[in-house]
Write a protein that binds this DNA or RNA. Structure first.
Lengths: 224, 224
DNA sequence: ACAAAAGTGTTGACTTTACACCCATGG
DNA sequence: CCATGGGTGTAAAGTCAACACTTTTGT
């Protein structure tokens, strides 16, 4: 590779995170409003350009912090978006990440150096986004639906443990589907993603529910 | 993003393909030997730096052509590798692709402008590779094993159709596992990846086998 | 004792596994 | 007619889907 060749110049990396939450049965994603060109005034997913001194995931986390104030998130790389013209100023290849957190546990910055607003949008009410972010978000939602059944990605939504009824509502919100309570329990437990704690929910006028927690490590299943 | 900021300079994209084949029950991957620094004389996966004028997949295909002579391959993006120091000269983020072809159908160039050798290596006999390619290859093998049961990736290995006994040998080679013949058929057909042609194998002293072909489009299955 | 939500078990349908014999072809 | 490899069915075990009643708590 000849570093001076023009074909290799002016290329950069975007790190873009679709950060989800679930509020009262509604799956939402965090969007920010741009304060600069290009796409000034447009809503976009959180993200920005990677520094050449940081790893991909660290860059995505830094951008989240800078543009929304959100910290302590676990995210997972899911796909790269590299069409030549996806960004207008120069050639940018975007690495997409997903994560999910409890929006009640974070303080969202409404304005920063580079953003004029930030908010959680229900995933079925997404405005036209800047860049190719509608496409990235679509893929992110698909990936989220896959990951919740085969990884512990939901751990960051329930860092203090979760009850099966809560989990069921979450799955129903994300997969947009209803489940039978008994069968959901059996399925969930057989997925081997959660483990019993010996605690119960704080009660509120009804039978307290058992608390589970997501496992630290998930072993992968046979595929054939 | 301030384009002049040093933090955004000197970043490039690698497009790296793990191209597999299966020969007599052995899964192999294509490696090339480097003719230049860095890693001069080392074996690596096929790939190189992306031009700022081409899409990711096009770049990976171009690199395959340039360094091995291989054309008409279908490849699939699977993961990004972005550790700050994965490449010694400058910051390079690698986008990994996998593909699988029939090695008998291609003419492999043994030497090119940038390579001093090229060959198919059994995946359990891989030498230490340049860059982080051992890690990339490991992930690529995992992904291959997932893809053969949920996508039509094997189509490019069998462009003219395939019989169930051939397919079974291929799955056994890639998954490193034996299957019962009757159960393999049932499973394979229920996966809905292949469809009957009304042809049969050209025979060679025994009962001719029915020919199947991989479907163009695979619909995705329910996940919960 | 009532309201509200949590927890639990069984049956029938379906899927998966284990296993052995017949069939078509070329020589 | 024999050797080679291809094709098929069935019974037992396991998994999945549908369904209703009992338990615990606070008031």
């Amino acid at each position: 590779m000849d570093v001076k060749n023009k074909l290799y110049k002016n290329t950069g990396i975007h790190v873009i995170t679709a950060l989800f939450t679930v509020e009262q049965g509604v799956t939402k994603v965090l969007l920010i409003k741009r304060k600069n060109e290009p796409f000034l005034g447009d809503w976009v997913l959180t993200g920005g350009a990677l520094y050449n001194t940081e790893d991909l995931e660290d860059g995505a986390i830094r951008e989240l912090k800078e543009k929304t104030g959100i910290e302590n998130v676990e995210i997972k790389q899911f796909k790269v978006f590299g069409k030549v013209n996806r960004s207008p100023m120069m050639r940018m290849v975007a690495v997409g990440f997903i994560g999910i957190i409890d929006s009640k546990r974070v303080h969202l910055l409404r304005e920063t150096r580079n953003t004029s607003n930030a908010d959680w949008f229900p995933i079925n009410k997404i405005p036209p986004l800047g860049y190719d972010h509608n496409e990235i978000l679509e893929e992110a939602i698909k990936e989220l639906r896959v990951q919740i059944v085969k990884s512990n990605i939901l751990k960051s939504l329930f860092p203090d443990g979760v009850t099966l009824p809560e989990l069921q509502k979450t799955y129903e919100a994300i997969l947009n589907k209803k489940f039978d309570r008994r069968n959901f329990r059996k399925k969930m437990l057989s997925l081997d993603l959660i483990e019993d704690t010996n605690l119960t929910d704080r009660f509120e006028g009804n039978k307290p529910a058992k608390l589970y927690r997501f496992k630290k490590q998930i072993e992968n299943k046979e595929i054939f």
